[in-house]
Design a protein around this nucleic acid. Structure first.
Length: 572
RNA sequence: GCGCCUGUAGUGAAGGGGUUAUCACAAGAGGUUUCCAACCUCUUGUCCCGGGUUCGAAUCCCGGCGGGCGCACCA
């Protein structure tokens, strides 16, 4: 089989059969936007459902759903506005494009504070040369904003907003509600699937770099001092690991997840567990495990919010492509939102092993004296007294107030006493481990890995060998001939099958039976049920298995039973 | 965003300054056929968009849009 052109043959198939197609094509199309057609949308729905089900098995993980339109302030706090407003400089001589701040390097202390005009001036002053052609002839710097901007409110004063670049912020916004929902107990997780948007400079590679894409993200909130771990021996498979090239474990390795963790290559136990869970999900939806690897980001590559990041990459027609990023976002997001929003709800409570009892000497103000002396400042004085950590040995003394001034406290104003307190725990900002899945990239690789170009009786024969859980239809009903009662029986059977919850079937009546098998094989329908002459006599039908074309005969009631219990494959 | 290549039915291709644009496969209708893309008849459907040159443009030129590859970019 001709391997060159496999990708274009697969792409043709995806268009022809309504799996994935360019969007807005009659108007010329838009780069980086694609449609899922009738077959593709089914596959996508089932992949997303599989993802939700996969993580729902984890205790204390819930699904949420939040808006794609996001106010600017949220993305300022998250760091996206700053990170996305990088200035670009283009060389007039060779047309090379570079990030202005990279070029200016250490020529200025705070490049972020400069606007385009100041940057242009700095370029001239420092005589910055183009790294690729050595010229000193720059276009004006221009902002590169990778977020789609919009505004909330149609009239006059509207708020700036952006289409979300990730779904994660939705989970952070709901942190207080989640903390309540889980009754103030870590760890817990929230997940969300939905669209994300990036105004890519140059979308490429079909479904790989889209401007509007489907994401599935899980934010797992943990106590950094008590990170949850899991028994990694449940995943005995060998995986390919590419540790940080600058780190102590550099070089590709093959090992089990347990070995990788024990060797200290993946340091964080929760991260290790997410790597294993991710691998399992990919296998469940039909990714070839031998074409998967986990690659650790070098520190230079790390996102602004992460302290450690592993990419799960899949090998396919486009080479190794990042499809999942598993990042330790630490407390970055919650802390930042607490700071910017001034909300006090972005924390969790941690009990000490044993309560800390404290007895300390305090000076209690005597209200009837302090009040008349200090009048409107009396409450400030009381506050300052209660916050004193080192009590003065003798009175009177000068008490420093919050506003920087000080007042003299004399003996008659206070009483010396002992105050007992019990501190049983403390507030802290939870850390977050985030697996972020690119659904479109995963779907592409499912299609890629399961697209089989075979030979059948000297003819090319194509099968999409999809896992039944992500196939566009569970089965197709085929009357051998669309007449003589077989047509009626097939339609009645289709209605019965269609009434089974979660089972999706279609009927195909046109052209020869072989052609119809071929058509359903091509879009990955795992089972074909054929109604033939014998069916009319004894109510049996044949079931054909897509991947080896084997057939068994079974009566229709048993077929319905198997579909309800999901045990069709046990017939073979 | 730059450079090179490129755009013809649903898909894949041929052709090309001049009547009605060609082929295969696919699709639809009918016939035939007792389980794997068979066959026969009929049918539907295409020159990416805009401007220019020309008596005439799908063809040549320019621009846009889309696609591929390389460079750059990719929290």
């Amino acid at each position: 089989m001709d391997e060159n052109g496999r990708m274009s043959r697969l792409s043709s198939l995806l268009r022809r059969r309504g799996v994935v197609l360019p969007s807005f094509e009659i108007y010329g199309g838009v780069s980086g936007l694609v449609d899922y057609g009738p077959v593709g949308a089914r596959i996508k729905r089932r992949v997303v459902n599989s993802w939700i089900e996969h993580w729902s098995k984890v205790p204390n993980v819930v699904e949420i759903d939040s808006p794609t339109i996001t106010p600017e302030s949220v993305l300022v706090a998250s760091g996206h506005v700053g990170e996305f407003n990088d200035k670009m400089s283009e060389c007039k001589s060779c047309s090379g494009a570079f990030r202005s701040d990279h070029l200016l390097g250490n020529h200025h202390e705070n490049l972020d504070s400069l606007d385009s005009v100041e940057l242009d001036a700095l370029f001239v002053k420092e005589g910055i040369k183009c790294p690729s052609c050595d010229a000193q002839d720059w276009e004006k710097t221009s902002p590169m904003n990778l977020m789609f901007q919009t505004s909330i409110g149609a009239m006059g004063s509207s708020r700036t907003a952006f289409m979300r670049p990730e779904t994660a912020q939705g989970m952070f916004m709901l942190y207080p509600a989640l903390y309540r929902h889980f009754r103030q107990r870590l760890p817990f997780g929230a997940m969300q699937t939905g669209k994300g948007y990036r105004n890519e400079i140059s979308p490429r590679q079909g479904m790989i770099r889209l401007r509007e894409f489907n994401m599935a993200e899980l934010e797992y909130f943990i106590d950094p001092e008590d990170p949850p771990s899991s028994d990694l021996s449940s995943w005995p498979g060998i995986v390919r690991i590419l540790p940080d090239p600058d780190g102590p474990h550099s070089g590709e390795k093959e090992a089990t997840f347990e070995e990788v963790f024990e060797a200290g290559i993946v340091k964080h136990p929760t991260v290790a567990w997410f790597l294993a869970m991710t691998m399992q999900f990919l296998e469940d939806v039909g990714i070839d495990p031998s074409k998967v690897r986990f690659r650790q980001h070098a520190s230079s590559e790390m996102a602004h919010y992460a302290s450690d990041c592993w990419d799960c990459e899949i090998n396919g027609e486009h080479g190794w492509i990042e499809v999942v990023g598993i990042a330790n976002r630490t407390c970055h997001d919650l802390e930042s939102h607490e700071k910017f929003s001034k909300s006090g709800l972005m924390r969790a409570w941690r009990n000490y092993d044993s309560p800390v009892k404290e007895s300390r000497e305090v000076l209690k103000p005597i209200g009837s004296v302090v009040g008349p002396v200090f009048r409107e400042r009396a409450s400030e004085v009381s506050l300052a007294l209660s916050e004193l950590t080192d009590l003065p040995k003798k009175l009177p003394f000068a008490l420093l107030l919050a506003d920087g001034t000080s007042v003299e406290i004399s003996e008659d104003m206070v009483t010396r006493s002992y105050q007992d307190s019990v501190v049983s725990g403390e507030y802290f900002t939870p850390h977050v481990i985030e697996p972020a899945f690119g659904i479109d990239r995963i779907i592409w690789h499912i299609l890629d890995h399961n697209y089989l170009e075979l030979e059948k009786e000297d003819e090319k024969y194509t099968i999409l060998s999809l896992e039944p859980s992500v196939a566009p239809y569970d089965l197709v009903v085929l009357p051998l001939f669309d007449k003589d009662g077989m047509d009626l029986m097939a339609r009645e059977l289709l209605v019965r099958i269609g009434s089974i919850s979660g089972v999706i079937a279609e009927i195909d009546t046109s052209r020869s039976i072989g052609r119809r098998y071929a058509r359903s094989d091509e879009i990955g329908v795992p089972w074909a049920v054929t109604v033939d002459h014998q069916s009319l006599d004894d109510s049996t039908v044949t079931i054909r298995r897509r991947d080896d074309q084997k057939q068994v005969r079974i009566d229709t009631d048993s077929l319905i039973g198997c579909l309800i219990s999901g045990s069709l494959s046990s017939l073979f």
